[in-house]
Amino acid sequence: MITFDDVVKVYPGGSTAVDHLSLELPTGKTTVFVGPSGCGKTTSLRMINRMIQPTSGRILIDGKDVAGQDEAELRRGIGYVIQHAGLFPHRTVLDNVATVPMLLGKSRREARAVAAELLERVGLATEFASRYPAQLSGGQQQRVGVARALAADPPVMLMDEPFSAVDPVVREGLHREFLRLQKDLGKTIAMVTHDIDEAIKLGDVVVIFRQGGHLAQVGTPQELLEHPADEFVAEFVGRDRGVRSLSFDSAADLPVRPLPADLVLDDAGRPAGWSTGESTGGTFTVADSLRLVTDLAISSPVGIAVRVDDHGKADGVVPHHDLVDHLAARRGRK
């Protein structure tokens, strides 16, 4: 657990970047700091590994004050990923990843063995190991950056806008990769982003900062979307937050109706379209979210979303008006 205890950072010149921040980042979870530029999110992150010294207050990792520890030793035990990856241009990909193990005293051979394993883990083929960073695409560099941060198997990772320098398609892939890795590794991660969608997608906990280094709200993505603390948060998470909050509700308890006669099935029982010749426009399972069901119902030409089981066989439908009733009832429950 990372604890901010009444932390203040005032820069020389008098601007307050972080104003009496008290916060806990749970172990094994991803906590995302998000907010407009100049809100103190990056300063807060960089105080964790002492790249910036707080003016007052304490930061503790698992109860130990970071201020009492040797800076270099502390940093070797904390993974750090930044925008554009900050890879060493003069070292091969493999040696970039081997950096921290070698700083920690491992032999070159051991460190390289660890590095090779990690490259595979972040989805980079072995042929990349002997290349230099300049020979990689932005997305590949960012993967190397993540592998390098993981190399010493640190329990804590800091990520400063790690995915903002790549194009949306690549970012999408990196997001998937990140969620998969984090599911396996369960690191305690603090991440900074200016993109609220990224925060909602990747964060277990989202911390919204406002200008001047104040906390606006701390909560799970769903809490922020459904119960923004004030106008600032509501504005920041976006006007479509209602629809987006449906992503966090399961379609499991949505009542379904039996298959109607005009739904055409193939031999295996899978939906093939409507008898009018129109497509179903996609299907959902009990594992999907209410947002997907809503989307299907709205975009379907007949206003009906089709549910399938694990084998893809149609097992029920949700018409438009049933969905509206369910959403109304859901609102009553909240």
């Binding site: 590994n49 790249m51 800076e71 270099a72 030793e73 502390l74 940093r75 070797r76 035990g77 904390i78 750090y80 930044i82 925008q83 554009h84 990856a85 900050g86 890879l87 060493f88 241009p89 003069h90 950096t99 921290v100 700083l103 390098r148 800091l158």
Partner: peptide, 25 residues
């Protein structure tokens, strides 16, 4: 500067950072 910063964040001390990272680059 990002390269220097990431070296610092990985736990390089000043002299070794100079010899291992800054001078070669």
């Amino acid at each position: 500067p990002l390269v220097v910063e990431s070296a610092t964040a990985m736990g390089y001390r000043r002299l070794r950072r100079l010899v291992d990272v800054q001078l070669p680059v």
